[in-house]
C-alpha cells in the first residue's frame, strides 16, 4: 500500500457522508427535472447489478459454487424473501456445492 490507510478511510467517510447529508439538509422542495429523477431512480439498481456481475463468480473457491450461490439468491429474492434469508441462503448454497466440488 502506497497511501496512508487513514487518509483513505477519511476520504471514504467524507464523500459518503456528504452524499447522504446534502439533500437532507439542503433540499426543502421537490426536484422537478424528470431526467434527473429518472437517472437517480436507476442508479441503485444499475450500480448493484454492475457490482454483482461478474464479481460474484470469483467470490468463492470455485466458479460453480459461486453460480450455485447466485442462483439460490436469485430464486429466494424472486420469492421476495428478506435480506437475511437471501444472503444466508446464498452462503449455504455455496457451502453445500463445495462439499461436492472441493
Amino acid at each position: 500500500m502506497k497511501g496512508n490507510v487513514y487518509i483513505y478511510i477519511l476520504v471514504m467517510a467524507l464523500v459518503t457522508y456528504i452524499i447522504r447529508a446534502l439533500p437532507l439538509t439542503v433540499i426543502r422542495k421537490e426536484i422537478k427535472s424528470p431526467f434527473i429523477k429518472s437517472f437517480l431512480y436507476y442508479v441503485p439498481y444499475v450500480t448493484l447489478s454492475a457490482m454483482t456481475v461478474p464479481a460474484i463468480f470469483t467470490a468463492t473457491r470455485s466458479v460453480y459454487s459461486a453460480a450455485a450461490g447466485f442462483i439460490a439468491a436469485l430464486v429466494l429474492a424472486f420469492l421476495r424473501k428478506g435480506l437475511l434469508t437471501v444472503a444466508a441462503g446464498a452462503c449455504l448454497a455455496v457451502f453445500i456445492a463445495e462439499l461436492f466440488l472441493i
Binding site: 447489478s49 454483482t52 464479481a55 459454487s65 447466485f70 429474492a77 435480506l83 437471501v86
Partner: peptide, 16 residues
C-alpha cells in the same frame, strides 16, 4: 468461501 457471496446475496435481494 461461503461467506464470500453474502454481500452479493444482499445486492440480489435489493434488486430482484
Amino acid at each position: 468461501s461461503a461467506l464470500g457471496v453474502a454481500l452479493y446475496g444482499m445486492f440480489v435481494a435489493i434488486v430482484v
